[in-house]
């Protein structure tokens, strides 16, 4: 474990806490893409298949449980909770995310570290996570003004993988056997997708203005 990875995990955790805060405090999920949340739940469920068979550390197991439980809780809130589900922008959240799932699975069948059940699903979860934010970014552009908590949520979500890139660079130089090309390249793509969001987030912070993405 290095400081970059720990900071990345904490940033990821903060993004989830900010989203839970938004939903709990405002009893609303306006501006949040249910499709992106469903994709994240799928990412965690397919990445942490070794949750009960493999053990790395208490920290690793606890964080996996938190990520799985929180992503499922958010999907439940947006689908089932009688008050929250009413504020879901169903007619704006129309990204066909099934294509993202199919593309990631096909790529995982072609590009993997080892042709084994868990490795294929691990690669699938890495590819899917890289593009899972797309429905959310499209929804932000369509819904015009973005409330603060939603903006912070997307910012921390993008920042966490950027910290992981620093972690991979660090491990590349310190861990001689380290080879994680699938996660590295995928992480770079994932972080690049946030580039324009980061720009508009910075502008809104600098001008102390409402976050606004161009349509």
């Amino acid at each position: 474990m290095n400081i970059f990875r720990f900071a990345g995990d904490m940033t990821h955790l903060i993004s989830i806490l900010v989203l839970l805060l938004k939903i709990y405090a405002t009893k609303s999920c306006s501006g949040i893409s249910l499709k992106t949340q469903e994709l994240y739940a799928l990412v965690f469920l397919t990445r942490y298949l070794d949750l009960f068979t493999g053990f790395i550390s208490i920290y690793n197991t606890v964080m996996k449980l938190i990520f799985i439980a929180s992503s499922l809780a958010i999907v439940w809130c947006m689908r089932v909770h009688p008050i929250v589900r009413r504020s879901y922008d169903k007619d704006l959240d129309t990204f066909r995310h099934y294509f993202l799932v199919a593309a990631s699975f096909i790529l995982a069948l072609l590009l993997y570290e080892k042709f084994a059940f868990k490795e294929i699903f691990w690669a699938f979860s890495i590819y899917l996570e890289a593009i899972a934010i797309l429905p959310q970014l499209v929804l932000l552009q369509r819904s015009g003004n973005v409330d603060n908590l939603t903006g912070h949520y997307v910012f921390f979500l993008g920042a966490y993988r950027a910290l992981y890139i620093l972690n991979w660079i660090y491990r590349y130089f310190t861990d001689i056997h380290f080879s994680r090309w699938i996660a590295c390249v995928s992480g770079l793509v994932q972080t690049a997708l946030y580039a324009d969001f980061f720009y508009y987030y910075y502008i809104s912070w600098r001008n102390n203005a409402k976050l606004k993405l161009p349509a």
């Binding site: 990875r5 070794d50 690793n60 570290e113 490795e119 691990w122 380290f178």
Partner: peptide, 10 residues
């Protein structure tokens, strides 16, 4: 060292 299949990252 990092072995293939041992994913120690989240």
């Amino acid at each position: 060292g990092e072995m293939v299949g041992k994913h120690d990252e989240l």
